[in-house]
Design a binder for these strands. Structure first.
Length: 884
RNA sequence: GCGGGGAUGCCGGAGUGGCCAAACGGGACAGGCUUAGGACCUGUUGGUUUAGUACCUACGUGGGUUCGAAUCCUACUCCCCGCACCA
């Protein structure tokens, strides 16, 4: 048995020595950029679940490289973040220490997997040479008014002790701490104005041809564009306006009340000094104190109250009561709504509860609604009614018309509303990129001048536990001079969300060591966009929106010539063990080292690629790994066979078919199927005494993306120059794929089945003498099908259909000629004699078995046409075998 | 509720209109090899069975399209994932 570990170590060294995966721009070669989302270097290292992700990318990168592309395939680390900081606090040390140890370990593990990264391009986000450019981008955004600070209601995770972006709140819980309720705080925070790009981010989703539908849908929903109208109402005895957003201007005449979100600032102003003030205050406090997620649960009972004020509908001059209610969200739209109980379920429930009138303004096309008798709202389309000049119109048509009408009367206008909020990037943590802002008592908020970048994190610094952001306690960091007036000033202590780093790291790979610029435009425009991005779906509304936003922003700075970072995104499935996702916290991890030690890493890689298609979740199975190991050994041992120059027709056919299929499978990320095809060919060759040089070499090439070390070794063994990793991917020759040869092989398989059946018979019936006729009629099987159709239906259509759909349709002509015969007399299967002799050798092997084991006399002959006919006559239904 | 994805043999998982009782692997069983075990090799692995290249029943459930359905349409059931009172 081969020592796969020794082989792996040897070739990893050779690769490194020869620097074969190092690339540079080459305008003569077509580029290909393969990228896996860069990982957070967790202290516990990477397990097989991570390994799967990298092996997918690696196999693909290797495939592309062998196809002559100039492949950029880099790796780096998302090395800022909480775990390292927490570990540092616990150990009274510095996060940098932990982070760098973890990175070292990660690199070691990834190198042991044999991944073909260009390590010279590694980036780590905690490196000042990297985060300097985070700060640079921040300042550019500041310049363009796309980064700004404002006070707002923010999500606070008590475990992280920092704020979170909307995207990082999942069902009211922190994305990292799935059991921790997110709290609401009112704080001054830095934001990126991603909403400026909302429309483009949405519009360009349709450019993302190689993204999974659900990821695109998630982004669409997240951006949440709705077209509608803003409507203004005058508030009675006040100079204030009540402004609302609605997608249903067609229900305008059905408005019977208006509702504010309780925390809307106008509410307290309106009730000030009235008898409602006390109760409103009480209600608002109750609602606001309630946890936000609970409040917005759909089954939450709708509650609210009248605030004693009315607004005037400027068209109908009606007086409309104003309410506050828990189901109205301050964050969306204008924080106030029109309520049309007849045509909105929420409004309906509220109206019923508080006895507010219901007014029907849209009737279904087939009946009329009765406001008194309605048990629920009618949300469908229909014909306008009670709507003055719009009566009788289809409500869909009325939407733009009413909007226009309101605009003309200066009490409304068409508008577009998004759910997407600006990206809150402030974090009250140490281990992140400092926001390059200085506060001066005289000059106010002053951005750090570009020449002073990077603003570095302090290195010699002792952490104090539980006192908020540790940076605040670092005097050396906080106190500084104002860049404008040189007076005393203090630095911003918030650091940036780590998603800022991952929003542009893929660009830095193109020019990873540039000291002067964020990157060289020429280099970036050569490599970008990413041709194949690989990563998990969990980032659908976080990283995968942010990196699109950054790309668009940098394009607007004229640094990039494209709109989207990648058009092709592949989402790999999760690796499970014992039915749950493999993870440290679940305690079910399998480490690549364990697997490698037992079987060699190529076995591990092969197993990960083989068991399921890469996009599916798969279950880890120790037994399955063993099976893969058996196969790899078989594969390896194949090359101890005698290798000859000549290839026979059948082998050539099989080989070229395999080349074709494997290539197609890899191209479409069906790596599992590609490996099956390779297994097939391996097994076929395994049963031969000697194999051809052509098969041997091509087999190694086909297998090399999946088991690169083993294949390097075999490549050398075949007398080829290193490296198979740089060798040319084989091309199939369509002419060599020989359907007849394939069919003959099928016949051999059938023959085996026959013989086995015979063996059984002999055993049971103690037959002493047997006479075998090998049918030369290899098309028999197809006639069987046709005969079946004929027997059943006697339908010419079926027969023609069957022929034309069969893989033998190129023989369809011969067969079609026979149709009249078939139809006339179904029992009369015409003879078709094959021009090739069948597998006598194989048959002889079986004869030996029969004679030796069962003491049964056997005669074998290829049936002459007449003899076979005779045999068939004697044994109808058994044309191939005759028992005497 | 809305949106997306699923349901295939003992298990993992291929298969998108006709060589499908269904790739490949695992497991189980039988046989070979072996002092024995392991490894390796061969076969069996839905049911019936007169043992046939047979028949029946089968790819979540019911209906439909078709000469023909695991595959297409439709309704339903269940599972997973996202969003969730978004006006």
């Amino acid at each position: 048995m081969a020592n796969f570990n020794k082989i792996a170590a040897k070739w990893q060294k050779e690769w490194e020595k020869a620097k074969i995966f190092k690339v540079k721009e080459d305008s003569k070669k077509k580029k290909f950029y393969v990228l896996e989302m860069y990982p957070y270097p967790s202290a516990s290292g990477l397990h097989m679940g991570h390994a799967r992700n990298y092996c997918i990318g690696d196999a693909y990168a290797r495939y592309k490289r062998m196809n002559g592309y100039n492949v950029l395939y880099p790796m780096g680390y998302d090395s800022f973040g909480l775990p390292a900081e927490n570990a540092a606090i616990k150990a009274k040390s510095h996060p940098k220490k932990f982070t760098e140890a973890s990175i070292k370990n990660f690199i070691k593990q990834q190198k042991a997997l044999g991944l073909s990264y260009d390590w010279s391009r590694m980036v780590t986000s905690h490196d000042p040479d990297f985060y300097k450019w985070d700060q640079w981008v921040f300042l550019k955004m500041y310049e363009k008014k796309l980064s700004y600070k404002r006070k707002s209601v923010v999500n606070w995770c008590p475990k992280c002790k920092t704020v979170l972006a909307n995207e990082q709140v999942h069902s009211g819980k922190c994305w990292r701490h799935t059991t921790t309720e997110v709290e609401v705080k009112d704080l001054e925070q830095w934001f990126f104005k991603i909403t400026k790009y909302a429309d483009e981010l949405l519009k360009d989703i349709k450019k993302l041809k190689g993204w999974a539908e659900d990821v695109k849908t998630m982004q669409e929903n997240w951006i949440g564009r709705s077209e509608g109208a803003l409507m203004d109402f005058k508030i009675e005895k006040s100079n204030k306006k009540l402004s609302v957003f609605t997608t249903r201007p067609d229900t305008f005449y059905g408005i019977t009340f208006l509702v504010y979100a309780p925390e809307h600032p106008d509410v307290m102003e309106l009730v000030k000094g009235t008898k409602y003030e006390k109760d409103v205050k009480k209600f608002v406090r109750k609602v606001v104190l309630e946890d936000k997620f609970m409040r917005t649960a759909e089954d939450k009972e709708k509650e609210g109250m009248f605030i004693g004020k009315h607004a005037i509908n400027q068209i109908t001059k009606e007086k409309i009561p104003i309410y506050i209610a828990n189901f109205v969200l301050y964050e969306y739209g204008t924080g106030a709504i029109i309520a049309v109980p007849a045509h909105d379920q929420r409004d309906f429930e509220f109206a019923k509860k508080y006895k507010i009138p219901i007014k029907v303004v849209i009737n279904p096309s087939d009946y009329e609604l009765n406001a008194e008798k309605m048990s629920r709202s009618y949300m469908g389309d229909g014909i306008m009614t009670n709507s003055e000049e719009f009566d009788g119109m289809n409500n869909r048509e009325a939407i733009p018309k009413i909007t226009k009408f309101l605009a003309k009367n200066k009490c409304g206008k068409a508008t577009v509303q998004y759910k997407l909020r600006d990206w809150l990037i402030s974090r009250q943590r140490f281990w992140g990129c400092p926001i390059p802002i200085i506060y001066c008592d005289k000059c106010g908020v002053v951005p750090v001048p570009e020449k002073d970048l990077p603003v570095k994190l302090p290195e010699n610094f002792k952490f104090t536990v539980g006192k908020g952001n540790p940076l605040e306690h670092c005097k050396k960091f906080v106190s500084t001079k104002c860049p404008k007036c040189k007076g005393k000033a203090r630095r911003e202590t918030d650091t940036m969300d780590t998603f800022v780093d991952s929003s542009w790291y893929f660009l830095r790979y193109c020019d990873a060591t540039n000291k002067k610029k964020i990157f060289d435009q020429k280099k970036v425009n050569y490599w970008m966009p990413i041709d194949q991005y690989i990563g998990g779906k969990e980032h659908a509304t976080m990283h995968l929106i942010y990196f699109r936003f950054f790309t668009k922003f940098l394009r607007d700075l004229k640094l990039l010539k494209f709109d989207e970072p990648t058009l092709n995104l592949f989402n790999q499935g999760m690796l499970h063990k014992n039915g749950v996702v493999m993870s440290k916290s679940k305690g079910n991890v399998v480490m690549p080292e364990e697997v490698a030690k037992k079987y060699g890493i190529d076995t591990g890689r092969l197993f990960l690629m083989f068991v399921a298609s890469p996009e599916k979740d798969m279950e880890w199975s120790d037994k399955g790994v063993e099976g893969t190991y058996r196969f790899l050994n078989k594969f390896y041992n194949l090359f101890s066979k005698k290798i000859v120059a000549k290839i026979d027709r059948r082998e050539a056919s099989k080989l070229h078919k395999t080349i074709k299929e494997v290539t197609e499978c890899i191209q479409s990320f069906k790596f599992n199927l590609a490996i099956i095809k390779i297994m097939d060919l391996t097994n076929y060759l395994h049963n031969k005494e000697k194999i051809s040089k052509e098969s041997a070499e091509n087999l190694v090439l086909l297998m090399s993306p999946f088991a690169p070390h083993t294949c390097e070794e075999l490549w050398k063994k075949l007398g080829k120059k290193p490296f198979v990793s740089l060798a040319k991917w084989p091309k199939h020759n369509e002419k060599k794929i020989d359907e007849k040869a394939e069919a003959e092989e099928q016949l051999t398989v059938n023959l085996n089945a026959d013989i086995n059946a015979l063996l059984k018979l002999i055993k049971v019936k103690k037959i002493k003498k047997i006479r075998l006729f090998v049918s030369s009629n290899w098309k028999y099987k197809f006639f069987k099908q046709f005969k079946k159709e004929v027997d059943k239906t006697r339908d010419v259509k079926a027969i023609i259909g069957a022929i034309m759909k069969s893989p033998l349709k190129k023989y369809g002509q011969d067969i079609t000629k026979m149709i009249p015969v078939l139809v006339k007399d179904a029992s009369k299967v015409p003879e078709v004699v094959l021009d090739q002799k069948t597998e006598l050798k194989q048959l002889n092997d079986y004869r030996n078995v029969l004679e030796k084991e069962y003491k049964c006399a056997v005669e074998v002959e290829v049936a002459e046409k007449s003899k076979e006919a005779k045999a068939k006559q004697a044994n109808p239904g058994k044309p191939a075998i005759v028992i005497e």
